[in-house]
């Protein structure tokens, strides 16, 4: 198991946020956590990323790289130097870090923007740069906290298709937070549904469908319209 969580409990003062959350994530698996707003999804990630100590419960997590909701690309760094941030913090020499991150610019659709400033990128490109910064750290698990939540619907759909391909290509183990049911169904091997606060896993659904996932008749029209909009 890459991640094993048992009976996790977190409270902030009197406010109970996580109330006995348990689940596993297997190597190479793509698991989504679906839950209403304010249900403690981000709190769960903070525990997994080692930013927050739980009050009770057991967490066994392989090393993880955390991608927060905001892209948090720093304006004082070029796009390339933003993506090497985690490597530099880990002590990798700058030249090696740049070579390593630079090799991912092509598959991430960022070629030619290595030396641009983040504000020269579109919303989708910024999220891909933030994901690159996460992936390049070579951790065992990617923790993605609503990575496409701030994007417009067209860009979001394009990004979901792209993430689906990338994940198949690189074989990442992913734990994704979302409140977009379609996103969860489109991308995941398994979906965990959290209850409103205090959160616990109330439903679990394995999705054994091939990738890329077939679309329904109505969604096929949607795909055609999206194609025309490009």
């Amino acid at each position: 198991m890459k991640i094993s969580v048992r009976d996790l409990q977190v409270s902030f003062g009197d406010l109970r946020v996580l109330d006995g959350v348990s689940f596993d994530v297997a190597p190479g698996e793509f698991v989504s956590i679906l839950g209403p707003s304010g249900s403690g999804k981000s709190t769960l990630f903070q525990v997994l990323a080692g930013l927050l100590e739980p009050d009770a419960g057991r967490v066994e997590a392989a090393s993880s790289a955390y991608m927060p909701q905001k892209d948090l690309l720093f304006p004082w760094r070029t796009v390339l130097d933003n993506t090497t941030l985690g490597l530099e913090v880990a002590g990798m020499p700058r030249r090696a870090a740049r070579a390593k991150a630079g090799a991912l610019f092509e598959p991430f659709g960022l070629s030619g923007f290595e030396h641009s400033r983040p504000d020269e990128l579109s919303g989708g490109m910024r999220q891909r740069a933030a994901l690159l910064r996460t992936v390049v750290q070579d951790r065992d698990v990617l923790l993605l906290d609503e990575p496409f939540g701030a994007l417009d619907s067209l860009t979001r759909t394009a990004m979901q298709e792209w993430l689906d391909e990338m994940r198949a290509r690189f074989g990442w183990t992913v734990l994704l937070i979302t409140h977009d049911v379609r996103e969860a169904v489109y991308l995941s091997d398994r979906v965990l549904v959290l209850s409103p606060r205090p959160a616990r896993v109330v439903h679990e659904r394995t999705i054994d469908l091939p990738h890329p996932r077939e679309v329904t008749a109505a969604a096929a029209v949607e795909v055609e319209l999206r194609g025309a909009l490009r």
Binding site: G50, P68, K70, L72, F74, L85, V89, A90
Partner: peptide
């Protein structure tokens, strides 16, 4: 940004590293 601090900490940054990489340039 609190989330920027969290991001740096998730990368294993010390308080000083966080200061140097985020707080200092952000204050300019």
């Amino acid at each position: 940004d609190r989330e920027a601090s969290n991001l740096l900490r998730s990368m294993g940054a010390s308080r000083w590293t966080e200061f140097r990489y985020v707080r200092l340039p952000g204050a300019l």
